[in-house]
C-alpha cells in the first residue's frame, strides 16, 4: 500500500493550516478529509498504487492535482494556494444618506 503526503503553502511560501485536502478521484480510497496542520502538512495512508486526483479547499480551492502513488516511492505534493482577497468594503455612501456639507470629503 502507498501513501500521499504533502504541504500546502500560500503564495508567500508560508504554511497554510486548516486546509481541507480531499481525494477527488482514483482507486478506492478512504473518503476522509485530511486537514493540514500548523506546518501545512497533510497525509493519506493505506492507498493502493494508482493515479489519484487531489484537491485543496482553503479560503480558495485549488485546481485538481494529479498524483501517482507507487508503493516504493510515495509522492510528496507541494501546493501553493492563493489566499482569498479581503472582502471589499463599501466606501460609497448613497447621496440620499449623505448629510455632510460640501466641504466634508466624501468617501468614494
Amino acid at each position: 500500500m502507498g501513501n500521499i503526503t504533502g504541504i500546502v503553502r500560500d503564495t508567500t511560501d508560508a504554511p497554510l493550516e486548516d486546509v481541507n485536502m480531499i481525494i477527488v478521484s482514483g482507486p478506492p480510497h478512504p473518503d476522509i478529509v485530511a486537514i493540514t496542520d500548523a506546518r501545512g502538512r497533510f497525509g493519506f495512508d493505506n492507498l493502493r498504487p494508482g493515479h489519484y486526483v487531489l484537491k485543496a479547499y482553503g479560503r480558495l480551492e485549488s485546481d485538481e492535482i494529479p498524483v501517482q502513488v507507487r508503493a516504493s516511492q510515495p509522492p510528496f505534493v507541494e501546493i501553493w494556494l492563493g489566499t482569498a482577497p479581503a472582502a471589499e468594503e463599501n466606501y460609497l455612501i448613497d447621496e440620499e444618506g449623505y448629510f455632510g456639507d460640501e466641504d466634508t470629503p466624501r468617501a468614494d
Binding site: 502538512r41 516504493s72 505534493v77 507541494e78
Partner: peptide
C-alpha cells in the same frame, strides 16, 4: 488563477512525527 503545485516521488516513508 492556476494552482501552482509540484509532485516529487520520495524513497521510503513520509516524514511525519
Amino acid at each position: 488563477m492556476e494552482t501552482k503545485f509540484r509532485v516529487t516521488q520520495r524513497n521510503g516513508q513520509y516524514d511525519y512525527d
